[in-house]
Amino acid sequence: MKHLKSINQKAARVERHVMHNTPAAVATAAEHDVVALQRGGPPQQPSAPHIPLGCSLVFSPGWEADRTGGTAGLCQPVERDLFDCHIGCYWPAQVPDQLNHAPDWTNKCAAAQKDWRKIDLVFP
């Protein structure tokens, strides 16, 4: 935070949070680990976190993580956009596609944001 000056309210809030809030926050500032969507990562991961994190379980940045490896840039809640992925065949490894694997996936679920408990896990 040494080289930045806050010029709007949100930035000022961040600055207050980092510099003046709690002992923990001050420690955080000392470690320069306030990270958001900028490239690069915290001190423990000097380059951007390597995504996928795991090789066999975690796939692409965008579904599990944003390009920095965090959740800040994710579509949230995931149910908000789920049907678009399903119908548009986007994230086909994560969301059942309507075209082939699960044409009836949304039958029980008119609006995922309300009916998300009825969404099935698909074993293709």
Binding site: Q44, E64, G69, G70, T71, P96
Partner: peptide, 18 residues
Amino acid sequence: ARSYLLISVPVYMRWYGP
């Protein structure tokens, strides 16, 4: 010491079932 933990969304396809 510390590690980074990402708590993320589910996957709705389970490719490797049985």
